[in-house]
Amino acid sequence: MKTTGDPIDFGFLLIPQFSMLSFAGVLEPLRMANRLAGAPLYRWWLFTPDDQPVLASNGIPFRPTAEIGHPGPLDTLIVVASIDVASYCTPAILHWLRALASRGINLGATSVGPLLLAKAGLLNHRRCTLHWENINGLREEFPDLDLTNELYEIDGKRLTCSGGTAGLDMMMHLIGQRHGYQLAVDVAEQCIHPEIRESRASQRLSLRNRLNVTNPHLVAVIECMELHLEDTLSCDQLARQVGLSVRHMHRLFKKNLAMSPSAFYLDLRLKRARALLEQTGLPISEIALACGFAAAPHFASCYKRRFKQTPSSERLRSLNDYPRNY
């Protein structure tokens, strides 16, 4: 039985091709907290799906330091994964995660790891998040999840994080809760992390920075497009939404983005379709509808013009390619 002064035990389930940046984001703050406190506040153990060494996305191998069959007295387990996580949603892993949850262990995940918790049914009725590029895919696959765009979410015994440096913010929040705000600040300074971001901070750069545009009307039109990728709006409707004439809206797109509003809108929809093809097992006909295409043949034609391959070829390629990681 643990006492108040005992170290807090973290486990990390490393899914092959996991992102090193995401792993460092949730592990290094614990190490720094121990060093700054001059005491072993935290211990950690590494698990892998089959108790064998795994490679990170950069090719560096990691050996497990504990076995799944003998997890020990964990306080928290965090799944560290990237885009290939669906390949490791095996019955054995899902059963293990459910068993840990039944013991009252905190369960978390970073980057695309929340998909594993969702498939285990462990995010039902909990707020959760994951990497911004995968949010639409998870929403399509699990429409009933309370999925947010936050940097991280802590809801009871579930902790989910969007990955990368957002892990620093989540872990410093936890350190602050357990060991005081000043230690969290000291850890942040060691990380050269000048601000501990709140969970509601944006995952992404603003539209202005992403597209290098400053005109507020143009930004408003694009934001409206992003909100209506499935139930698409006409140019007339878009212009009315932001109080512009259609002619003025066309001029703004031509001047700032060198394309028409309809071409830009189509590109947004096709990029979302590409992400869904790579990240989900949804039928291509459903992906077409989710991206505002009423007919699958029209979707396939537009897709091939944009990406030089059909949606079915894209899906096959994504299954065979080396995974992208965050």
Rank of each mutant, 00 (worst) to 15 (best):
R178F: 15
S301H: 15
Q190Y: 05
D9T: 08
P7E: 00
C191F: 11
F62C: 15
H179I: 09
F23P: 01
C128G: 10
H70T: 14
C224N: 14
I284H: 12
D155K: 10
N325T: 08
L94E: 14
S206W: 00
M20R: 03
I222R: 06
L13F: 12
A296G: 01
S199T: 14
I15E: 01
L116D: 13
L14S: 02
R139F: 01
Y326C: 02
H298N: 12
L14T: 01
A81K: 06
C302N: 12
L205S: 00
L207V: 08
L97S: 03
E198I: 11
V80T: 08
I287N: 09
D9W: 00
T232V: 07
K254A: 11
A109I: 12
R98C: 13
L94D: 08
L282R: 01
P73K: 14
I93Q: 04
I78D: 12
P261M: 02
L145T: 15
Y322T: 06
T65W: 06
E286T: 13
S57E: 09
G176C: 02
A220M: 10
G243W: 05
I135E: 01
A166Y: 04
G167Q: 07
A288H: 05
L227K: 05
G156L: 02
I222C: 09
W44S: 06
Q309S: 14
N136L: 05
S19T: 04
V242D: 04
L289C: 10
T160R: 03
L115Q: 06
A258R: 07
D75E: 08
W44F: 10
H95A: 15
I222Q: 08
V221K: 01
I93N: 15
F253R: 05
P64W: 12
I196T: 11
A118L: 09
R178G: 14
Y322N: 04
T160Q: 10
L151D: 00
D51F: 11
V246F: 06
P297G: 03
T148K: 01
W132G: 06
R315M: 07
I60H: 08
I222E: 09
P283L: 05
E198C: 11
L41E: 12
P311Q: 06
Q203A: 03
Y42C: 02
S199N: 09
P16E: 09
C235H: 07
N34R: 01
F142S: 06
L27P: 07
V54T: 04
T90F: 03
L13K: 10
V79L: 14
R127N: 06
I284F: 08
A56M: 07
L122W: 09
Q177Y: 04
A56C: 11
R158G: 06
D9C: 00
F307C: 05
